[in-house]
Design a protein around this nucleic acid. Structure first.
Length: 344
RNA sequence: CCGCCCUUAGCUCAGACUGGUAGAGCAGUCGACUGUAGAUCGACUUGUCCCCCGUUCAAAUCGGGGAGGGCGGACCA
């Protein structure tokens, strides 16, 4: 595989790459390392899943991949996770992420898992954090973290340390590439700005698109109807997709199309399968799509009606998450201990 | 350490001065209309009024105590 092919693999299905030329350079020189961090807060959902195929792409492009379970960040962000649940939630996140990577067609054993608290309390790290805190204005830190850290009536100092620590994580993990949702852009732009002055190098940033919610607008972790949970059974997934905002012939805010493009088709492609829609003869009979592009073309042209698309999309999404769902249901203690107030 | 303010539906809040069956908007649920959903109509649901004690025939409302949160002042050898 030549550099151009590796670059295409590493950058496909992304929202933005800063800067692509830098990534090309890294690939030309050898084996770049990439990392993505997840703060173990609420239950993982399908939005997380859409970032997993990219990790497989990175591996396929001959890169090293590290997944950071950012346990301390989960507490620093407005105490989304209570301090004494960090271990249980980290365990749940790691198991779930491994299941998703597996389901997405990659081998979890090829990925290194690291927990934030393993190195974020090191003396060198702490010292550098304080130095950064001394030279970063409050408004700058707020701006960097505004899309990530929860807004609160009583904002805590932790939310300001958050982007600084994430910046130091890049260096501590020795990552050439920082990967995350496009919501992480503010933080990593701060990292590119600051890291060269703090003993590191500006990372190349690869951003995944944030998918629309099923109820229109942004997907909200707190809105059950806007997202598919990894533990939702097939019936529930089909029902949620059936209730989704999905205007005929429109792509904007259309979560159903986005799920197909960024979740279903990449996984079908990996498995060498195609997407089949069962449709009454009255409306044209069954259709099969090999690529998302073909499907979108028909949908935008009005040749594929939402009422026909939805049941097939729901079933396909359910099929994609099924292995993850089964693995989680096989280990009920993971969820019970991570979210005792919900599962007790 | 001192002072002031806040706490009512899932969310944002009104009601408190002047005690009398706890409200609005949004959200949600259900119908109608669409071959989906949304939008739009129509209907419906929602409560530890932060906790305890007291006054009263009657307390979200008045009094006392407490908890949580916010703001300010003071102290600064």
């Amino acid at each position: 595989m030549d550099t151009a092919e590796r670059l295409e693999l590493a950058t496909r299905n992304t929202a933005e790459v800063v800067e692509e030329s830098e990534l090309q350079q890294l690939l030309a020189e050898g084996t770049p390392s990439a990392y993505i961090g997840y703060a173990p807060t609420g239950e993982m959902h399908i939005g997380h899943f859409t970032t997993m195929r990219k990790l497989a792409d990175f591996l396929g492009a001959g890169m090293e991949v590290t997944v950071l379970i950012a346990d301390l960040h989960a507490h620093l962000d407005d105490a989304k996770s209570p301090f004494d649940l960090l271990d249980a939630r980290s365990a749940y996140y790691q198991e779930t992420i491994e299941a998703m990577i597996d389901a997405a067609g990659a081998d979890p054993d090829d990925i290194e898992f690291v927990r934030g608290s393993e190195f974020e309390l090191d003396e060198d790290y702490a010292l550098e954090l304080l130095r950064m805190a001394a030279e970063t204005t409050i408004s700058r830190a707020q701006r960097a973290a505004s899309e990530v850290v929860r807004e609160s009536d009583s904002p805590k100092l932790g939310g300001l340390l958050y982007p600084l620590m994430q910046t130091l994580d890049v260096d501590a993990l020795d990552a050439d590439v920082a990967y995350g949702g496009i919501d992480q852009r503010g933080i990593y732009m701060l990292s590119r700005e600051m890291l060269p002055d703090h003993g590191g190098e500006a990372p190349v940033c690869v951003f995944a698109p944030l998918l629309s919610g099923l109820s229109g607008g942004k997907m909200s972790a707190s809105d059950e109807a806007s997202k598919v949970n990894l533990t939702d059974d097939r019936e529930t997934v089909v029902e949620k997709v059936g209730d989704a905002y999905c205007p005929a012939g429109e792509r904007e805010d259309n979560g159903v199309l986005e799920y197909l493009e960024y979740l279903v088709f990449p996984v079908l492609d990996e498995r060498g399968e195609s997407f089949v829609i069962e449709r009454p003869e009255e409306y044209g009979g069954d259709v099969t799509y090999e690529t998302y592009g073909d499907l979108e073309e028909d949908f935008l042209a009005g040749d594929l009606h939402p009422a026909d698309l939805k049941p097939a999309a729901g079933a396909a999404i359910s099929a994609v998450i099924a292995p993850v769902r089964e693995r989680l249901l096989d280990q009920p203690a993971l969820l019970r201990e991570a979210y005792p107030e919900k599962y007790d």
